[in-house]
Design a protein around this nucleic acid. Sequence first.
DNA 1: TAGCACTACTTAAAATTTCAACAACTATCG
DNA 2: CGATAGTTGTTGAAATTTTAAGTAGTGCTA
Lengths: 150, 150
Amino acid sequence: MAGWRAYIEASQRLFTQLEDDLRADSGLSFADYHVLVLLSEAPGQRLRMGELADRLVFSPSRLTYQISSMRRRGLVARESCPADRRGNEAVLTAAGLLALREAAPGHLASVRRHLMDDLDDVEVATLTRVFARLGRRLRADRDASSTHSD
Amino acid sequence: MAGWRAYIEASQRLFTQLEDDLRADSGLSFADYHVLVLLSEAPGQRLRMGELADRLVFSPSRLTYQISSMRRRGLVARESCPADRRGNEAVLTAAGLLALREAAPGHLASVRRHLMDDLDDVEVATLTRVFARLGRRLRADRDASSTHSD
DNA sequence: TAGCACTACTTAAAATTTCAACAACTATCG
DNA sequence: CGATAGTTGTTGAAATTTTAAGTAGTGCTA
């Protein structure tokens, strides 16, 4: 249980530190950055709102707010989905891609400096394995509990 | 870098899940719970606002808000610090201690179920070591940067 | 022992996030 | 078809969190 508390505290400090660094040298928030990364990797550089919310672990309304803000700043655009007219897609703009490219090197350096440099190879491998497995399980749990009898 | 993203996503899901469980079976938020734990372990079951904010990784004003809310609900009290009259202490109340005792078993079970059950002993040891070290380093970095030339 | 810089915390206003409806569309069933 | 239920996502209000600006008290120093 001591480990559990160390995990919470260190994670909190880490996220705070990374967000501060990122904001200072690119003007992007952590959330902005992650949206840009996910869109840049998606086919057509576009994703449905629901899909994006799920990957970011954001509530739908939080994502709506996040995307409107990024849209005002020209980082993304919105298009309604041709196949399913209830749906909306967030689309990466040229300005968004540029912002990501400018922010990435500094952010990666910051991740390396605050986190990776502290870890040896075995630790990195363990963390990667553990959190990948945990993520899968938590996703599965959630799917099960929403599909079930609620 | 894949590990890094798995870590963020899984942590987010984990915290969300634990908060939901905790809220559902005790009415406490994650923040409430942590305040109660820290106070219950402190000598005299009381802590200075600054000390508490630091351990929770909360901004000062966020802690002021958090404590006022807990005070309205009778979970903590406030006393001004005799030694330093700028200071204030948050003090655990009997009701606060009771709330913690009622919430703890369920919360621990939830941590076990969502996190610990997924890990073997070596992994737990690694995570504990890694995050303890990381927390120390991030604390040290922050102290260094605030003491320095600003 | 008055002045000045700093510390500890609070407050008010702005930004963000959640929560509880809602609107629009799709899919299924009779 | 036409009603009904379920999806997708948005909106408005309330709750929370941040940011910037206080307020009060401490402590050094001259």
